[in-house]
């Protein structure tokens, strides 16, 4: 998969910096999650003492992993999509369509963030049973996803690049 998913480094400076930042955060989070799952299973298997709090942390952070991962995808112009029809359009029309797509994506993510924000206000203070992890952690992951993708769309509007 290494060769398959990853394309070349982008040339745009903003895009490159944004990618480096988000990738580092995602890698750190993923390493932490793997370590937590391993610690839980080692604790349970070797010492008959599972660490149930790790499950609460993992579940709460999954949404953040989703948000960061899809942001990387967005910054690489790699979001899953279907080009069967758009590939047939002429180059100038494709360029214009791309602007419309980015604007539409921005509007959609703004609406998602708005609803997630309201939801955060109502239920963000609810706490998980074992360690009292506030629900604002996973909810803000949705906002993170919306913000990350918005950033990707904005960068692609200002400095479009094919990867």
């Amino acid at each position: 998969m290494t060769e398959a998913v990853i394309a070349d480094r982008p040339s745009g400076r903003v895009r490159r910096h944004a990618l480096a930042l988000v990738e580092t955060a995602a890698v750190a989070l993923l390493v932490a999650l793997v370590a937590l799952v391993l610690a839980n299973s080692i604790g349970r298997y070797l010492f008959a003492r599972p660490l149930p709090w790790t499950e609460e942390v993992v579940v709460a952070l999954l949404m953040w992993l989703g948000g960061l991962g899809i942001t990387i995808s967005g910054l690489r112009n790699g979001l899953i999509s279907c080009a069967i029809w758009t590939a047939r359009l002429s180059a100038p029309i494709q360029r214009r369509l791309r602007i419309v797509q980015n604007l539409f994506g921005l509007a959609t993510m703004a609406a998602l963030a708005w609803f997630a924000w309201q939801y955060l206000g109502l239920f963000g203070g609810d706490r998980s049973p074992l360690i009292g992890m506030p629900k604002s952690v996973p909810i803000s992951g949705i906002i993170g996803c919306a913000a990350g993708l918005s950033l990707a769309f904005v960068i692609d509007l200002i400095a479009p690049e094919d990867l």
Partner: peptide
């Protein structure tokens, strides 16, 4: 269930509670 009171109860009774 992953309820702190429920786990503590069975720990006290001598079992090894797991979630």
């Amino acid at each position: 269930p992953s309820s702190p009171t429920r786990m503590m109860a069975f720990q006290t009774l001598g079992a090894a509670p797991t979630n």
